[in-house]
Design a binder for these strands. Structure first.
Lengths: 158, 158
DNA sequence: TAAAATAATATTGTACACAATTAATTTGGA
DNA sequence: TCCAAATTAATTGTGTACAATATTATTTTA
């Protein structure tokens, strides 16, 4: 591949990721509209349905989001009465997120979403598994790169 | 997989896409900071470097972005004097985007980016090719789904 | 144990995304 | 030809992302 080929949009893996991610989020939208939540809010709900009460930071670790993103998002979920936010008693720096009854009950309405979505993408089960495997590998590598970049003295390598 | 398994974050292909896409964008950031542009702005520059002058709509078709996103982004690129915006003379609805000399010259500084980035992800060449192939397939299928949804009378299927 | 370092969250500011609406222009019939 | 439909961008409003900073609470350490 020559220099110009390397810069062609179609040759950018990053663009495929970027575009596919947004297109998939677009497929979620009509399903999540029925629940009255956005796609990032849905990811937060998934984490809470799976793990129960978590602090803002623990949610952020799992979703790779910081408080700048999560704080306003969680306030919106609180306004919808899907979660409750409260300072931890043991450590008053932490803000604990707890599902309300409404929020916990929403899980029942969500069970059908994953399958509907895979179906709507038009992917075969084999294709789904392959892609998930490859993306999982990339994801794990990227997590390593990220944690490596955070080590002291490694800020200039990237 | 039972119902609860289906809703686990780790089982969501969409989350892998979403997280990996943002992490990759994070790897681009230090490289693009040197050029003074953001990742979506870089994608616009890629399209212009590849195709020359294009209308706002043509850029949007290639990047799957609408004028609500592109108009302010392009105004920022114009302020940096990387592009020029001007109404088409043949069709005054269209706004043509043209690279300035500075914008065209920036391509030379970008040639090294794709390889640096793949290297920084830690992916092998084989892994890169496999993932790109699988993502390409998904992308093409999603494009079909999207165009299908746009056909009259198909709004409720998704 | 008091000051310094660290940690957790919130806030501020900039830049996307995208739905919905608006405005201007072009096009295609009746 | 004239006008309704379609096309193209811009605008408005909401909701992420994320860097940088601020704030408050905890932990370390001198």
């Amino acid at each position: 591949m020559n220099r110009d080929e390397l810069l062609r949009l179609d040759n950018q893996l990053c663009f495929l990721l970027y575009a596919a991610s947004r297109m998939i989020a677009g497929l979620y939208r009509p399903l999540l509209d029925k629940l009255g939540i956005t796609y990032p809010q849905y990811l937060v709900m998934l984490v809470l349905w799976e793990h129960g009460d978590l602090s803002v930071g623990e949610i952020g670790t799992r979703l790779h989001l910081d408080s700048g993103t999560l704080t306003p998002l969680l306030k919106r979920l609180e306004k919808q009465e899907l979660i409750q936010r409260s300072r931890s008693l043991e450590d008053e720096r932490r803000v604990m997120i707890r599902l309300t009854d409404t929020g916990a009950a929403m899980k029942a309405s969500a069970y059908s979403i994953p399958e509907t979505l895979i179906c709507n993408t038009g992917m075969s089960m084999a294709q789904y598994r392959t892609l998930k495997g490859e993306l999982g590998k990339l994801f794990d590598q990227l997590k390593q790169v990220k944690s490596c970049a955070k080590e002291p003295g490694n800020h200039e390598n990237l």
